[in-house]
Simulated scan of single mutants.
Amino acid sequence: MRIFTALAFLALAAMPGATNAQDGRYVCSSNGNEIQQLRIYEINRSNKDAFHRRFQDHALRIMKRHGFKIIDMWESDTGEKIEFVYLLTWPDQATMDSRWSEFLADQEWIDIKKQTAAESGELVREANGQPLVRVSYSPACSAR
């Protein structure tokens, strides 16, 4: 997990920004509200390929339709578990929340999940997402 946190922050360091104070929080982003979101899925080893096919062939396309902007993706295999990790960027928290609601309610996505579960079983053991807001003292802010 630590490796993905480090990777995520390396990816974030490449993103543009400007320092702003907002509600007592110090952030460094292009509009003061921009956030990134780190998503981590623990996937089943036995149907890892089915997970990647579903994500590549279907989830990415449907996410794009709902305005998702994925920065990068990784896989980690520690021997104990396999995790799929990706990083998104959003203009603000409200947009992130509404787009996720739209995506999860998308009938095509619902049907695809049902179909792949019937064919391959459970693809994701656990899914977690956390918003990330750059702090003003990030090296990415002072690199300008």
Results as ranks from 00 to 15, higher is better:
residue 1 M to N: 08
residue 1 M to W: 02
residue 2 R to M: 05
residue 2 R to N: 09
residue 2 R to S: 08
residue 8 A to Q: 09
residue 8 A to P: 05
residue 9 F to D: 15
residue 9 F to N: 15
residue 9 F to A: 09
residue 9 F to C: 09
residue 10 L to G: 06
residue 10 L to Q: 13
residue 11 A to V: 11
residue 12 L to D: 06
residue 12 L to M: 11
residue 14 A to M: 04
residue 14 A to Y: 02
residue 14 A to S: 04
residue 15 M to H: 07
residue 16 P to T: 02
residue 16 P to V: 02
residue 16 P to R: 08
residue 16 P to I: 09
residue 18 A to P: 00
residue 19 T to H: 12
residue 19 T to I: 15
residue 19 T to E: 14
residue 20 N to F: 15
residue 21 A to V: 03
residue 23 D to W: 05
residue 26 Y to W: 11
residue 26 Y to L: 14
residue 27 V to R: 12
residue 27 V to S: 11
residue 27 V to G: 12
residue 29 S to Q: 09
residue 30 S to C: 10
residue 30 S to D: 13
residue 31 N to C: 06
residue 32 G to M: 03
residue 32 G to H: 02
residue 33 N to H: 10
residue 34 E to M: 07
residue 34 E to K: 08
residue 34 E to A: 11
residue 36 Q to T: 06
residue 36 Q to W: 15
residue 37 Q to N: 10
residue 37 Q to T: 07
residue 37 Q to M: 09
residue 38 L to S: 03
residue 39 R to K: 00
residue 40 I to L: 08
residue 41 Y to R: 01
residue 41 Y to T: 00
residue 41 Y to F: 10
residue 41 Y to C: 08
residue 42 E to M: 07
residue 43 I to H: 00
residue 44 N to I: 06
residue 44 N to C: 10
residue 45 R to Q: 08
residue 47 N to V: 04
residue 48 K to A: 10
residue 51 F to D: 10
residue 53 R to S: 05
residue 56 Q to L: 05
residue 61 R to M: 05
residue 62 I to Y: 04
residue 65 R to K: 12
residue 70 I to E: 12
residue 73 M to K: 02
residue 82 I to S: 06
residue 83 E to F: 02
residue 84 F to H: 11
residue 84 F to Q: 09
residue 85 V to D: 05
residue 85 V to Q: 02
residue 87 L to T: 09
residue 88 L to Y: 08
residue 88 L to M: 15
residue 89 T to Q: 13
residue 90 W to T: 03
residue 92 D to H: 10
residue 93 Q to M: 15
residue 93 Q to Y: 06
residue 94 A to S: 15
residue 97 D to E: 13
residue 97 D to T: 14
residue 98 S to R: 12
residue 99 R to W: 00
residue 99 R to Y: 01
residue 103 F to V: 05
residue 104 L to S: 06
residue 104 L to T: 00
residue 105 A to C: 03
residue 105 A to H: 13
residue 106 D to E: 14
residue 108 E to M: 05
residue 111 D to G: 03
residue 114 K to F: 03
residue 114 K to W: 01
residue 115 Q to D: 13
residue 115 Q to R: 07
residue 118 A to G: 05
residue 118 A to H: 02
residue 120 S to D: 07
residue 120 S to L: 00
residue 120 S to R: 01
residue 122 E to F: 03
residue 122 E to Q: 12
residue 123 L to M: 14
residue 126 E to S: 14
residue 127 A to Y: 06
residue 131 P to H: 01
residue 132 L to F: 05
residue 132 L to A: 09
residue 133 V to C: 03
residue 133 V to F: 13
residue 133 V to M: 15
residue 134 R to F: 10
residue 134 R to S: 12
residue 135 V to Q: 11
residue 135 V to A: 14
residue 136 S to F: 10
residue 136 S to C: 09
residue 138 S to E: 15
residue 141 C to F: 05
residue 141 C to R: 06
residue 143 A to K: 04
residue 143 A to L: 11
residue 143 A to F: 05
residue 144 R to H: 08
